[in-house]
């Protein structure tokens, strides 16, 4: 474990909690893409299938449990508990265009052609594009609530920090996972536009509004 990975995990965890609290407290999922949250639930499910077979550490196992549980809770709140506030008309990204290519790619490019490894690879590829429905929805509605932009910032920063974690691990642990690194780069690049808006607008107290 290194400081970058730890801060990355904390950032990821806080993003998940910010979203959970935003929906639960405001009893509304307005402006939130249910499709992205569905994709995140798939990402965690396919990535953590080794939850019971491969014990790394208490930290690792407990974080996995929290991620999986909170992603399902978020999907449940959006599609069930507060579905009356779900803005389906603006959450129209075609997720099949994300799931199919990443599934095919995980069969073609992976570290090991075994079910668990292919599912892990699919999860890595899918995570890199899972935020697209949410970013698409923000661009369609032209704006995002400030709390939603904090959620997106924390979520984007987590994988950016992981990039530094991989530099660190390459330097000091001879660890190198090209699949995770390339997908992490793609994921971070997708946030660049949002990072620019967040830093130039939200941090100055303005509302996040995209040029419609």
């Amino acid at each position: 474990m290194n400081i970058f990975r730890f801060l990355g995990d904390i950032s990821h965890l806080s993003a998940i909690i910010i979203l959970l609290l935003k929906i639960w407290k405001s009893r509304s999922c307005a402006g939130i893409s249910g499709k992205s949250q569905l994709l995140f639930a798939i990402v965690f499910t396919t990535r953590y299938l080794d939850l019971f077979t491969n014990f790394i550490s208490f930290y690792n196992t407990s974080m996995k449990v929290v991620y999986v549980a909170s992603s399902y809770a978020t999907v449940w709140m959006i599609y069930s508990k507060f579905k009356a506030t779900y803005d389906g008309n603006h959450d129209t990204f075609r997720v099949e265009f994300l799931i199919v290519p990443t599934a095919i790619l995980s069969f073609l490019v992976n570290h090991d052609f075994t079910p668990l490894e292919i599912l892990w690879t699919f999860s890595i590829y899918l995570e890199s594009v899972a935020i697209l429905p949410q970013l698409f929805m923000v661009s369609k509605t032209g704006e995002a609530e400030t709390i939603t932009s904090h959620y997106l910032f924390a979520l984007g920063i987590y994988r950016t920090l992981y990039l530094f974690n991989w530099i660190w691990r390459y330097q000091f642990e001879e660890f190198f996972d090209l699949i995770a690194i390339v997908a992490g780069l793609v994921q971070t690049v997708l946030y660049c536009d949002f990072f620019y808006l967040y830093i130039t607008k939200v941090l100055k107290g303005k509302k996040l509004s995209l040029p419609a």
């Binding site: 490894e117 190198f176 995770a180």
Partner: peptide
């Protein structure tokens, strides 16, 4: 490749 089936990152 990294510990195949032994991914230690979240």
């Amino acid at each position: 490749p990294p510990g195949v089936g032994k991914h230690d990152e979240l």
